[in-house]
Amino acid sequence: MKFVLSEEQQLLAGALNEIIESAGGTKVARTWAEGNTGPGLALWNQLAELGLFGLCVAEDDGGTGGTAVDLAVAFERLGYHAVPGPYIESAALLPGLVDSSVLAGILDGTLVATAAVPGLVPYGLDAAASSRCFILGSTSLSEAAAGPGTASVDRTRTLSELTAVGEPAPLEPGQSALAVDHATLACSAMLLGAGERLLEEAVSYAKMREQFGRAIGEYQALKHQLADVRIALTFARPLMNGAALDLGGPDGARSVSAAKVAAGDAATLAARVALQVHGAIGYTEEHDLGLWITRVRALLGVWGTPRHHRSRIASLLLSPASPSAELSPC
């Protein structure tokens, strides 16, 4: 199967690049990390006008009627630019779960929402900047109150414990699991986007930095490392696209887990190699490289750790209900 983005999806990616870069690019993440959420929320409203928060919402409900592939395209751009904020929660997780009044606020950008999912996402992201907080269980969605914020390894992410308040709203069977798979797909796309940016930064620096009279990118050992990253990212992309196409179907859960594992592994390799290429300057707070390195580390552990998703793939493959269950492990 050949995955090719449609003209509309390419235009969406281009529009996101243009809006984020005109808003300041990585400066938005830096000011957010310093506690100034103004530029980040201004960008939030711009992306809401573009229709980002309606990608998983039918046109009859005020959304764009987009597909999971559109969602993956958008979130890869968010990861590429290290955009801060609870986008996964507001755009991927909650639109299919909340009532119409909350949904309307999410779609027009006036409501910033975050959520915790016990077992997968123990803390609410950026609760202080969010209008509403929720806790998602397997069969219900509860409004929540946020505790004090705690620093993450990623300075742009502030984590808060959420406590349920009021009566939980019941959900239909499978509704919670599908929403979590949407969020996991979005997280995978952000990892892939961050990995692509790390590779781009590494290649650019390797062409510029000279050692012993030659650009370090001319050395064969470094070329091999960068090529390994390119291969890992390229192999992860069809898994992510396949997961987007499978989402909601019988193979959706397995495909989403495979995408999260592959994107996480590729982004981690990209972070390690990019840091090795940059050397000591890559460790400094002043260099933007740390924005993506710490983002990759943070996203690797939420929406299911690599161990969680590998176990999930194994259990689905070996399940009697799985169409692949009769395949020999040899």
Rank of each mutant, 00 (worst) to 15 (best):
A33F: 06
G51N: 07
N36G: 02
A58I: 01
D60W: 00
L43T: 06
W32V: 00
A15Q: 15
A23W: 14
A23L: 03
L41N: 03
A15C: 13
L55S: 12
R30E: 10
T31W: 09
Q46K: 15
G40D: 03
A48L: 07
C56G: 05
I20N: 07
W44L: 04
A33I: 01
A42H: 06
E21S: 10
A42S: 14
V28I: 15
D60S: 12
P39S: 04
I19M: 05
S22K: 14
S22C: 03
A23G: 05
A23T: 01
L55Q: 07
Q46N: 08
L16R: 09
L52P: 06
F53V: 01
A23C: 15
V28L: 01
A13Y: 07
E21D: 13
E18M: 05
Q46W: 04
L43K: 08
E59D: 10
F53E: 12
G35M: 03
L47M: 05
L55M: 08
G51C: 08
A42K: 08
E21P: 01
R30N: 00
G54F: 04
T37L: 09
A13R: 12
W44E: 04
V28K: 05
L50K: 01
E18K: 09
A29P: 11
G54R: 10
A42N: 09
D60Y: 01
G40R: 09
N36A: 12
T31Y: 06
L52S: 07
L43C: 04
G35K: 03
A15L: 07
G38Q: 09
R30S: 11
G38E: 15
G14E: 10
G35V: 05
G54Q: 12
G40V: 08
A48M: 09
T37A: 13
W32P: 01
L47Q: 07
Q46D: 14
L50H: 02
L55H: 11
L16I: 09
K27T: 11
T37C: 02
L47A: 11
V28H: 13
E34I: 00
N17Q: 15
G51R: 03
L41P: 01
T26R: 12
E34D: 12
T26L: 11
C56R: 15
R30M: 11
T31N: 01
